[in-house]
């Protein structure tokens, strides 16, 4: 485990591997979004109750999944960074945060747009909505913390601890609809039970989920690559300043 991690932690190797992977991820994202958006906006039937508003769901649900996925990525990378002191894991954690915050905003915004026609209100203080709002604040707090220090190294380590402490919210978001019986509907897709969704809805949703995952991978690779180059530039500038 650690052996293979060390192999990928080498920044030069990461730059090489990510350079090779980036075009595939970008292409995959474009294709998956093209197919997914066609299926969800045009190719799938309107719901018998919600009619056309059901299409918001194809944008909303995968964004919410990825909001949690990005936070978990951030927490995992933070744990690796704290335990093995990998610079690359720090960069992955820091680069995940703005992307995850973006997904959280998309999930909240689309949820509000769906809530107005369906629930009759943009916002309710429901357990799911509130915990996702807390998730957004955790993302923003993390971003504020890592940028609050003169020494970026110190910011990265403080942020890693905060990311791990804040992870406690992820299971709360996931299970909030089961623990508290409030307005937001419980999950319709379960690994263990037969899904409660018809294939005509399930297929576009899964394609969109794949598209969001690929988008996350693409953005993450891009951001980590940029951060690595920035880091190297800073080191070079420091070396030159010292003469």
């Amino acid at each position: 485990m650690t052996g293979s991690l060390h192999r990928f932690a080498n920044p030069a190797r990461f730059q090489r591997l990510s350079q090779a992977a980036l075009p595939w991820c970008t292409g995959g994202t474009i294709v998956a979004f093209a197919v997914g958006l066609y299926l969800s906006l045009i190719g799938s039937p309107p719901d018998y109750q919600q009619s056309e508003t059901v299409r918001i769901m194809y944008v909303h649900v995968p964004a919410a999944w990825m909001a949690l996925g990005a936070y978990t990525t951030m927490a995992l990378a933070s744990a690796i960074a704290l335990i093995w002191r990998h610079r690359l894991a720090d960069l992955i954690a820091q680069s995940s945060a703005p992307i995850g915050a973006g997904f959280t905003v998309i999930a909240l915004a689309t949820g509000m747009l769906w809530g107005q026609p369906m629930w009759g209100t943009f916002w309710v203080w429901d357990a799911r909505l509130t915990s996702v709002l807390v998730l957004l604040f955790l993302y923003l707090g993390y971003i504020a913390l890592i940028n609050a220090f003169e020494d970026p190294e110190r910011g990265a380590r403080a942020g890693a601890i905060l990311a791990l402490v804040g992870w406690i919210n992820v299971p709360i978001v996931k299970f909030s609809v089961d623990w508290w019986n409030t307005l937001h509907q419980p999950a319709s897709i379960s690994r263990f039970a037969k899904p409660a969704l018809h294939p005509s809805i399930m297929t576009p949703l899964l394609v969109m989920a794949i598209a969001y995952m690929l988008l996350f991978a693409t953005l993450l690779l891009l951001r980590v690559r940029t951060a690595t180059i920035e880091h190297r530039l800073r080191t070079l500038a420091m070396a030159r300043a010292r003469g």
């Binding site: 509130t130 807390v134 604040f137 955790l138 923003l140 707090g141 504020a144 913390l145 609050a148 220090f149 003169e150 110190r154 910011g155 403080a158 601890i161 905060l162 402490v165 804040g166 406690i168 919210n169």
Partner: peptide, 26 residues
């Protein structure tokens, strides 16, 4: 105490610690 330890040496530590800790106290 978690927040106070994390912001040691940070700029604007006072506002930052509130920002970090308030979501956790909900």
């Amino acid at each position: 105490a978690i927040g106070a330890a994390l912001v040691l040496g940070a700029r604007r530590g006072g506002v930052l610690v509130a920002f970090l800790i308030l979501p956790l106290t909900i």
